[in-house]
Nucleic acid binder design. Structure first.
Length: 567
RNA sequence: GCGCCCGUAGCUCAGCUGGAUAGAGCGUUGGCCUCCGGAGCCAAAGGUCAGAGGUUCGAAUCCUCUCGGGCGCGCCA
């Protein structure tokens, strides 16, 4: 049940009948409680355009609108707003008959490109946002019935591997441990920057890798295996849906790269510049107003990430038959993706009508406003971050509920800690940087995971306390108190929220919704006794509790956050 | 230099195709426990929406400029 769309359709139809032409109804949830549940703002704009009196148009629209059985009231207010209050019987029936989440009528095939760590290093905080936001988006799209194809475009193919392999080769260093390999990487990088000959040998190793030199490939593969298993550990710990089969590494496109170059050439897009092969598009200007190249092949023959990204678009269009590709990567790559998308379009790599979307986000900052680092100034590894989240949560749970068995406290702390980190990230819209603040994300007040988990566990507690078999609840929801009415409307707004999340790629809309739901539930809880009520009223309130708990759990799970029965 | 993103309360953030008196949380101040978890609820104080123009019946939202911050701009990803 998408209330907003239902009202939009009905009012838009009345508006069209009244005006003789189509006009948007512009329905949104009411700005203030006294304006009802929803408001339609479209009359004023339409009346203005046709030089009609907005109040008269509004009156006509109200008369024509088919809202019988849906709205209890539809009133004209101010210069021509329509304020709609939904009918309690309609709300009760909708709660009883509509599924909490309904599938989209026209499902799409959506590729979600996310996480994408660089396999030369351990996963660090820089990978968190893409992984968490992308995973939530994949879950939401799937819940709406879309065919989601997760693609973890891991970096396993660049210059960095050349330098790493060359370093290992020349120093005889060896290890099975990723942390050691990371140390090697840092030292290799130092040499790469300082020693021109070493850099040269490294680049040749990349070319050897890309041409399939068996010995180089063997050593490379071993390294990749270690690194990927580390990533999978993190994914499991984070509770993401990413699995090994979602890995579609840069190297997987190796055999397509020659064809990409050939296609670009055939399309007349390829130009040679300073020995490198590039695509120049007029709309991209760099320094001094010169056209910016997208370099697709280096002067030494090596390929770059632009090449693999183009190959990926081609693959996703032709093999995966994607209608839509959503990239969740940091904002610094915005220009790169604009170029890749534009070139892919010109070269015919994308399908007609295929939507290529970069959903950017900023860097994580500490509370001091500077990039989030350890005290020693190093990048924070994800494993450290998750350990600390659970430790902090455990201390808090132990302080508040020392009587719980330790195993349960640890499990609760795990859910709260991981959930808090994920929720803090998911609940912010910022395309620019965001501030990572332990105290705020672990606070039990405000728009945080702990508050939502608390709201959920408190409802569960009602059922335990009342010894109520929730599966046996029957009867109708009765909406008498204003808190009950508002809670019912809020419960039914899940669908429209999820559809907005899917359309815009903004999980924070779901966070905002869940917080609003929790707040409305708490108001209901304060105002309306549940277990001490009698008969139909008690049953009705328990039904509201059950639906609220289900909705909170569904919503949190779509964000990739678990719930606990008590905390 | 050019380009992209951003600037909303002391702090962290919302503000949905332009709409009614710009909203939350934290923090501050003050209420509410014979009642289902006080990890809660209610209320108050707090904003020239960076600034200046413009479009509009109506602008935090759209346009232009200025200031401030972040990022990007040829062989890294």
């Amino acid at each position: 049940m998408n209330l907003k769309r239902l009202l939009n359709d009905r009012i838009a139809a009345a508006l069209e009948a009244s005006l003789g032409e189509a006009a948007p109804a512009v329905v949104q949830s009411a700005a203030r409680p006294e304006f009802g549940d929803y408001q339609a703002n479209g009359v004023m704009g339409a009346a203005k355009r046709l030089k009609r009196n907005p109040r008269e148009v509004a009156a006509d629209v109200v008369a024509r609108a088919d809202l019988a059985g849906i709205a209890a009231r539809c009133e004209i207010a101010g210069p021509g707003f329509l304020n709609v209050t939904l009918d309690d019987g309609f709300l009760a029936t909708s709660l009883a008959t509509s599924a909490p989440v309904e599938a989209a009528p026209e499902p799409e095939t959506v590729v979600v490109d996310y996480s994408c760590p660089n396999l030369a290093k351990e996963m660090h905080v820089g990978h968190l946002r893409s992984t968490i936001i992308g995973d939530a988006m994949a879950r939401v799209l799937e819940a709406l019935g879309h065919t989601v194809i997760r693609q973890n475009h891991v970096g396993d193919w660049g210059t960095q591997f050349g330098m790493l392999l060359t370093f290992l080769d020349e120093t005889g260093a060896d290890s099975e441990l990723l942390s050691d390999l990371e140390t090697f990487y840092r030292e290799a990088k130092k040499r790469f920057d300082a020693d021109v000959d070493f850099a040269d040998r490294s680049r040749r190793a990349v070319v050897g890798l890309q041409r399939g030199d068996p010995e180089i490939r063997r050593r490379w593969q071993r390294f990749i295996d270690i690194s990927l298993s580390h990533c999978q550990e993190i994914y499991d710990r984070l509770g993401t849906t990413l699995r090994p089969e979602h890995v579609m590494a840069e190297s997987a496109y190796n055999d397509d790269l020659d064809a990409v170059i050939a296609d670009l050439d055939a399309a007349g897009l390829l130009e040679e510049s300073q020995g490198a092969r590039c695509v120049f598009l007029d709309e991209f200007k760099g320094k001094d107003g010169e056209t910016l190249p997208l370099i697709v092949q280096k002067s030494d023959g090596g390929y770059l990430y632009a090449t693999t990204d183009l190959a990926a678009v081609r693959y996703r269009a032709r093999r995966l038959e994607a209608d839509r590709v959503m990239y969740f990567t940091d904002a610094r790559q915005a220009l790169h993706f604009r170029q890749v998308f534009a070139v892919a379009g010109r070269a015919g790599f994308a399908r007609d009508g295929m939507s290529l979307e970069h959903h950017p986000f900023g860097a994580m900052l500490g509370t001091d406003g500077k990039p989030f680092k350890t005290r020693a100034g190093e990048v924070v590894k994800l494993i450290q971050l998750l350990d600390e989240a659970e430790e902090r949560a455990l201390a808090e749970v132990t302080r508040r509920n020392p009587e719980l068995p330790e195993a349960e406290r640890r499990e609760i702390a795990r859910v709260i800690g991981i959930g808090a980190v994920k929720y803090a990230d998911l609940s912010k819209n910022r395309t620019s940087d965001y501030v990572f603040d332990w105290d705020q994300m672990l606070s039990f007040d405000g728009n945080t995971a702990p508050y939502l988990l608390y709201a959920y566990s408190r409802i569960r507690s009602v059922f335990r306390r009342g010894e109520v078999d929730e599966d046996a609840l029957t009867g109708d929801v009765l909406l008498a108190a204003p808190e009950e009415h508002t809670l019912a409307v809020t419960l039914l707004r899940l669908q429209e929220t999820l559809e907005s999340v899917a359309a815009d790629g903004f999980p924070h809309l779901l966070c905002g919704y869940l917080y609003e739901l929790a707040v409305q539930f708490m108001r209901f809880y304060e105002a309306c006794p549940i277990l001490t009520a009698e008969g139909d009223v008690r049953a009705s309130r328990l039904l509201l509790c059950r639906r609220t708990a289900e909705t909170l759990k569904t919503g949190l799970n779509l964000l990739g956050i678990e719930t606990v029965e008590r905390m």
